[in-house]
Amino acid sequence: MLAKRIIPCLDIKDGRTVKGTNFVELRDAGDPVELAIRYSQEGADELVFLDITATVDKRKTLSDLVRKIATHINIPFTVGGGINTVDDVSVLLENGADKISVNTSAVKRPELISELAKNFGSQCVVVAVDIKLFDGIWKVVTHGGRTPTPLLATEWVKQCRDLGAGEILLTSMENDGTKAGFAVDITAKISQSVNIPVIASGGAGSMEHFREVFTRGYADAALAASIFHFKEIEIKDLKEYLQKENIVVRL
């Protein structure tokens, strides 16, 4: 049976792994290559790297880092941050990335999703969707959560799928960094409304939170950062717990 995936996320700033709360107050969490090796050895199913300060002059640093990671790890990995064009993606794939993720650039210009799907296949295109509650309605936000948009989360996700997205990485800004649990209800709604995999992100604080987002939230994968970086939860312990709870995981 297809297993539920556990995905550590490494937010990269100036070549280091960082982690903040609600996308601010960054603190250092170590060398990304060392962390990547550790996670692949500890049983992570996939890795996600988000270059949160990606600017044009720093792209070269990112592609070098991608190459270093690719030579060392034997599980799939996704790279995101500052991707605006087909050429941006070519460089990352040539350096060994398996998938890429787009966020703000796709909201600004949705055709980017179809251009990427056409050139590299849908399996390569993860659309990261950051969402926030406005008067009880989940809407899409961009620029690392700083800029609101009028897009309804449920509608934007369907549009992404129609344009050729292969997966959705859904992050709730309300939950991110809080360790109070994933946004289970909206994850369930979105996962059941599209027939492409949904990766739940934001809010993981305990092993029970993962169980909840897989069972009640219908997530196909769950992503977390700080609880893994700071060893609050070990991936192996998490997977053993999930298996006991009758959730299919790769052990």
């Binding site: 297809l2 297993a3 995936r5 027939n195 196909d220």
Partner: peptide, 11 residues
Amino acid sequence: TLKIPQIGWNN
């Protein structure tokens, strides 16, 4: 009922 593509680890 299934997500397509199949993405992930299967035995």
